[in-house]
């Protein structure tokens, strides 16, 4: 197909940002070349069981999953959502710290 012949389409982020017909999530996915994965995910939406839509939390019932609730809380902030401490601990090993040390003045690795 065309995509196979010419490689992946390169999107201009400046245009994607202001395309109101797509969500910021899909704009980012297109720009990063992850749109195929996104499409697959969209196709699989119907396969997802919605059993835990009503999740009991504490004394009351919360509508939607806890993750969705968290996202709603974070909609009004510029503080980025960080990975979990476990993920970050795995990432930031001594070798990786050594790579970052280049950004610091007087680092041992300089």
């Amino acid at each position: 197909n065309l995509r196979g012949a010419f490689g992946k389409r390169r999107w201009d982020i400046s245009k994607l940002i202001y395309m109101n017909n797509i969500t910021p999530e899909s704009a980012l996915a297109r720009w990063r070349g992850e749109e195929d994965e996104e499409d697959e995910q969209e196709e699989n939406i119907e396969d997802d069981e919605d059993e835990d839509f009503f999740t009991k939390k504490g004394n009351g019932i919360t509508v939607g999953s806890t993750e969705a609730g968290k996202q709603k809380v974070n909609e009004d902030t510029f503080i980025p959502v960080m990975k979990t401490t476990e993920e970050l601990e795995l990432k930031w090993n001594v070798e990786k710290l050594g790579q970052l040390a280049v950004k610091f003045l007087g680092s041992a690795t300089k």
Partner: peptide, 13 residues
């Protein structure tokens, strides 16, 4: 460049 930034830029526009 993340979703938060895109939302901000859309609001600015």
């Amino acid at each position: 460049i993340d979703e938060t930034m895109i939302w901000l830029l859309r609001d600015i526009k």
